[in-house]
Design a protein around this nucleic acid. Structure first.
Ligand code: MN
Ligand code: MN
Ligand code: MN
Ligand code: MN
Lengths: 236, 236
DNA sequence: TATAAAAGTTAGGTTAATCTAACAAAAATT
DNA sequence: AATTTTTGTTAGATTAACCTAACTTTTATA
């Protein structure tokens, strides 16, 4: 059994090692900054995590999460993102409110709860920020995401994520009636500035090329999103 | 801010003092047994709870929860019962599975979460065990519950709770198609053994007087359940 | 009422998670 | 290569929540 604190270390380790994509190794100070604690505190915890075989680590060396550590960590990320989806879809929290509450809910460890929640939410693939929700086997489906600016006239695409999570972008999208999982159909592209006329919820709107470059989409017809731009998808 | 442990002490205190209805005072050992810890541990915590003005307590004296302690405690009970309702109504957990998970979820302290959950569940008044859910002001609507055995021929009543929560009773009710919030109409009462013919979901069933004495009901017509057997309610 | 039983307290110890302050090793810069 | 900066470790404290063992007070009962 993992404590909430240990769970947070694993999440942080996964997040940072994804950023440090060279070798996926992480430093003590880096972890301390991310978790908002002192390096001495991290050092203590590293010993416990090593004992539990959740990390590989030698004194003065770099930290590397183990297979087992990653498995647990991904499970926490799954819980976090499912709760975010619940809060957004069902309880009508806004995009920027969900994270804080999910930070608490993610530590409630009951497998049946998470499976039932997943079912209740209709096995969502993305959380409200467009991040992929790992499946119940801990597998993260890799999405070959393209931006809306790659879509062609006449094409229908599904919005799956945003390039950044800033408030200005979010508010802008909200005002335009855009959001995760919405279906967009490209009506026209202006050759001059590449701005697009698109159809959302039967309403025609115009969006700039700059905005289109910040919206990740997948081909509407693709059932298996992970295989999107391989065979049938028209997005390039 | 209260820790999960402190919250559990307040819940236990409210539960036990309701049972010790003479003066509502509780002893150290009693609390220890209920919480599954040693009396010495309780003694430690009593000092902390007293410092936080959540209990009144003098050395070798009895423990009495304060106004403020009760307010917090009822808030936890509200969360617990709302989560139980969520698990039962939305995630299709069974009656006997919800408590364990709600024990964890109840400690997630976010007011907006609870208000939204309450809304999402349509402001339920009872949890899946028939216990009253305190409202957002911490008020517990007092129900003048009567057992089904008090109902008269021709009367329609709503099932609100069970006298006990045993598995045998639950299974029996389930097999008969009975459950919380179901509307029951009394068709006939056998003078010999007081067994009842009742209508549930348009189906006629027969139940023994013993069972009828274990089912709490309120008059179907009463909007304000708390005022049930005062004015309009036919139940006596 | 004296004594035994029950209830409650205290002292001293443990563990997880945090801290500060001092120190040591590794890396970067001159 | 020497020095400085950055990074990481250790020692020693603290706090909440638990424990055991010994002790004290209250209550019950012979
Ligand atoms: Mn988040
Ligand atoms: Mn967290
Ligand atoms: Mn319960
Ligand atoms: Mn609890």
């Amino acid at each position: 059994m993992l404590s909430a604190t240990e769970e947070n270390y694993l999440k942080a380790l996964i997040k940072i090692s994804e950023k440090n994509s060279v070798d996926g190794k992480v430093g003590t100070n880096e972890l301390a900054v991310d978790l908002g604690v002192k390096p001495a505190t991290v050092n203590d915890m590293l010993k416990r995590l090593k004992d539990k075989k959740l990390i590989d680590y030698e004194k003065y060396g770099k930290i590397k999460i183990t297979k087992s550590g990653k498995k647990s960590g991904i499970e926490i990320i799954r819980r976090h993102r499912l709760w975010e989806t619940f809060l957004f879809d069902k309880l009508k929290f806004t995009w920027d409110e969900v994270h804080e509450v999910a930070e608490l809910l993610e530590h409630v460890n009951n497998p049946k709860l998470i499976e039932r929640l997943d079912e209740f939410l209709n096995h969502p693939q993305f959380d409200p920020h467009g991040d992929v929700i790992p499946n119940s086997k801990g597998k993260i489906i890799i999405h070959f995401k393209k931006t809306l600016s790659n879509a062609k006239v006449g094409q229908a695409v599904k919005m799956v994520a945003m390039k950044e999570n800033s408030d200005v972008l979010l508010k802008h999208l909200f005002e335009l009636g855009l959001g995760i999982n919405k279906t967009l159909k490209v009506i026209k592209i202006q050759p001059f500035d590449l701005s697009m006329n698109i159809l959302v919820d039967k309403k025609a709107i115009t969006i700039s090329n700059k905005l289109a470059e910040n919206i990740f989409v997948v081909c509407k017809e693709c059932k298996v999103i992970g295989e999107c731009n391989k065979k049938m998808c028209e997005l390039e």
